[in-house]
Nucleic acid binder design. Sequence first.
DNA 1: GTATCACTTAGAGTTAACTCTAAGTCAAGA
DNA 2: TCTTGACTTAGAGTTAACTCTAAGTGATAC
Lengths: 131, 131
Amino acid sequence: MTYTINEVAAKFGLSAYTIRYYDKVGILPFVRRNRVGNRQFDEVDVDWLRLVCCLKNTGMALKDIKTYSDLARQGSDTGTTRQTMLRQHKQAVLQQIADLQANLELIETKIDFYADPQNKKLMDRLKELEQ
Amino acid sequence: MTYTINEVAAKFGLSAYTIRYYDKVGILPFVRRNRVGNRQFDEVDVDWLRLVCCLKNTGMALKDIKTYSDLARQGSDTGTTRQTMLRQHKQAVLQQIADLQANLELIETKIDFYADPQNKKLMDRLKELEQ
DNA sequence: GTATCACTTAGAGTTAACTCTAAGTCAAGA
DNA sequence: TCTTGACTTAGAGTTAACTCTAAGTGATAC
């Protein structure tokens, strides 16, 4: 089973432009072409793109995904280097989650603040300045 | 107690350029100036900037933070509207955390994949193509 | 009094990540 | 055969969020 560029784009909620852009910057190293020259994505390519999207959606910059892709293109000798990259990225993701949870507390505090009518005056900086 | 632009920049890990940019786009609506015209941040401004950073760091676009700021500038009548914005943003943040946790699983799977020497061949797409 | 320093402004430049346009190729259907 | 549709490319344009430059002001240090 193979997929066209529009099929994989739909599968991952991306545009065909984006997929071509990813190919252009070199993070889709294995995608082959049919006789006409159109990209033909197989299951391995789809799995690869899933990982690319995962790394992108967890905040990895495309230039770092490129580094990772270049290692993959070099073959299995780079396995431990790739693993190290993912381990470090995992820590970054854990940190992101912790940061989001900390920020969530401030957002919740602020929501509660608006719920209390006693705070009406504090919601209005200009009134404060008049005094 | 008041702070200069460089002091608040340091406090929040931003550059003075960024603070001026935030002021320019209108998300620091209450900051006053001293006789010379320099920005003078008081505790309320610092609290406001803390919230701005919180919203920015949880993925709210500056144009939405601007909308929120404009509401704040209009006074306490907009309290419930602001609360609604924060409630919706809270849901978006919870979704982000859930998405990060889901992506984390794929990253962990991939780390484990690299840990198993049995997968050496699968790490090398080119070898696969030779067969 | 002059140099230095921290600030000011308007506006230009940068970067990442797309997003689109224009021109072209090929295959299938009427 | 002609048109339609899905793809191709190179390269230009867009957007968000800064980031910096140039020129200027006013207070303090020598």
